[in-house]
């Protein structure tokens, strides 16, 4: 017997129709992307919505546009589509690897970028963490128009976007940063990572760090930047700096969440090693 109640579902073919349906449904309507989080609502003792508006058949939401200046990712692009599209974008290696390594192949074919950003109370989102490190922006639309938010502003507001609004795309500016994504699942793959560190670094002509953006996911409830470490690394030579050693006394900026796969203290404890691995991946990518 199905554990689900019987919500309605609308499957529009255009973004305008989807926004009109969501506007009409108001608080009774929820967008549905790949379904891999929403379909587990009963297991989390969460109620299903009265009605879902499925976004998977809207062609413009599945497009990924890549230019020399930026990458625009439609919110209904799946993890698998994103990993494949970024095959040659080495500056966005963090996002490519986040998309290619999360969950398992079947989930990566279903779960979408927008879903990863919008899943409520999902504490281990690889894509959201990578996009935070890449300083991406998020386009949110409703029937009246659209607006762009920084990833930080979006993460602070998600869950409170209000009815009728959906993420339509994510924009990543290509600013000459190198990037890398480091994650620690307890098995080699297939489970939720204990911690995620995603970095984007810009160097000067002497290979000193001009800017380091370091995003941490899965440690606390929502991904956030490790600003104390970012500041400490500014000006350091990338080839010689011992990132893990600088990170160690700054890990206490995080308060780890307890979970079935790991206690909170362990999530914090592994951060210096993970950030060290991410920087090592950056360095090796540069040679």
């Amino acid at each position: 017997m199905s554990p689900l109640s019987s919500p309605a579902i609308i499957v529009p073919e255009t973004l305008a129709d989807a926004l009109a349906s969501l506007a009409e449904l108001g608080a009774d309507g929820t967008p549905l992307a790949g379904g891999t989080w929403i379909m587990r609502a009963p297991l989390r003792d969460e109620p299903m919505a009265h009605a879902y508006v499925a976004l998977g058949r809207i062609a413009e939401l599945r497009r990924i546009k890549i230019s020399a200046k930026r990458v625009e990712i439609g919110a209904s692009a799946t993890h698998a589509m994103l990993a494949a599209a970024l095959e040659r974008c080495d500056d966005l290696a963090a996002l490519r690897n986040a998309a290619a390594q999360s969950a398992n192949p079947a989930i990566r074919h279903a779960a979408t970028v927008g879903g990863n950003l919008c899943a409520r109370r999902f504490p281990a989102p690889d894509l959201a963490t990578a996009l935070l490190g890449l300083d991406a922006s998020v386009e949110v639309a409703d029937a009246a128009g659209s607006e762009r938010l920084t990833m930080e502003a979006f993460l602070a507001a998600r869950g409170a976007l209000g009815p009728g609004r959906i993420v339509t795309k994510v924009i990543v500016e290509r600013t000459g940063h190198r990037s890398a994504h480091s994650r620690l699942p307890l098995r080699k793959a297939g489970d939720y990572p204990v911690a995620i560190v995603s970095v984007a670094v810009r160097l000067d002509d002497a290979d000193r760090i001009v800017e380091a953006r370091i995003a941490v996911g899965s440690v606390e409830g929502v991904p956030r930047r490790w600003t104390a470490l970012e500041e400490a690394l500014a000006g350091q030579p990338i080839a010689a700096v011992d990132v893990a050693a600088i990170a160690r006394p700054r890990a206490d900026r995080f308060t780890g969440r307890d979970g079935v796969e790991a206690p909170g203290w362990y999530r914090v404890h592994v951060l210096p090693v993970l950030v060290g691995r991410a920087f090592a991946a950056l360095t090796s990518a540069a040679t």
Binding site: P3, V11, G34, R40, L43, N104, A106, I107, D191
Partner: peptide, 27 residues
């Protein structure tokens, strides 16, 4: 598991392995 972790519910949808526990029939 009904969580997409175990693969016991795998079917092919348009040729792609798909976890049928997390796939609404409407999709």
């Amino acid at each position: 598991c009904r969580e997409g972790f175990c693969g016991a519910c795998m079917v092919l949808v348009d040729g792609i392995p798909t976890v049928s526990c997390l796939t609404p029939i409407a999709l």
